[in-house]
C-alpha cells in the first residue's frame, strides 16, 4: 500500500471525529515514526483545509517530527524539579556519551530530546527511553538504560 493510500485510510478512520487533525497526525506518526511531508496533501484534502494549515499544525507541536528519529529516542527532563536534583548534569552526561546536542542522533542511533516535565517530579531527575519512564536517573543508570536497549 502506498503512503498516500495508507494515510487516506487513516483519515477515513477518523471521519466521524470532530477536530480530527491531531488524532490523525498522532496515528500517522505512530505508523511511520514521523509525519512524512508527503502525507500532508492527503490529510489536507480529507479535512478540507490547505496544506499550509496542516503544515502549520505539524510545526507548532513539539511531538510531531518531519523526519524519522534514530532507532532509540531518549528524552531527558529539563524542567525545574529535575534541575533541582542534577538534571542539567545528567543531560550533559548524555550529550557527552552520545556525542550529540539536543535533537541530535548519535552514531549508535539514539535521538536525544529535551522534555519539559514527565510528572515524576518527586523522584527527579526523570527520563524516558523508547517510551519507558525512569526516575531518579543518574549518569550510571542512564548508561545501564542505554546498554539494556542495545544502544
Amino acid at each position: 500500500m502506498t503512503l498516500t493510500d495508507r494515510v487516506a485510510d487513516i483519515c477515513r478512520a477518523h471521519s466521524g471525529t470532530e477536530g480530527a487533525l491531531l488524532p490523525i497526525l498522532h496515528a500517522v506518526q505512530a505508523e511511520y515514526g514521523h509525519v512524512p511531508p508527503l502525507a500532508l496533501p492527503t490529510v489536507a484534502k480529507a479535512l478540507g483545509v490547505t496544506v499550509a494549515e496542516v503544515q502549520g499544525v505539524v510545526s507548532f507541536y513539539h511531538d510531531f517530527r518531519a523526519a524519522p528519529p534514530g532507532r532509540h529516542v531518549l528524552k531527558i527532563c529539563r524542567a525545574e524539579a529535575c534541575q533541582a536534583m542534577g538534571g542539567a548534569a545528567l543531560a550533559e552526561a548524555a550529550k557527552a556519551r552520545l556525542g550529540v546536542d539536543w535533537h541530535g542522533t548519535s552514531a549508535q542511533g539514539v535521538t536525544l530530546e529535551p522534555v519539559f516535565c514527565l510528572g515524576l517530579c518527586a523522584a527527579a531527575p526523570a527520563a524516558m527511553l523508547n517510551g519507558v519512564l525512569a526516575a531518579r536517573v543518574d549518569a550510571t543508570r542512564l548508561g545501564e538504560m542505554l546498554a539494556e536497549a542495545g544502544a
Binding site: C77, A79, E80, A81, C82, F116, C117, G119, L120, C121, A122
Partner: peptide
C-alpha cells in the same frame, strides 16, 4: 494538560 514542573496530582 498538566505541564507545570513540580506538578503531578492530575497524573
Amino acid at each position: 494538560d498538566e505541564g507545570d514542573s513540580g506538578s503531578f496530582a492530575d497524573r
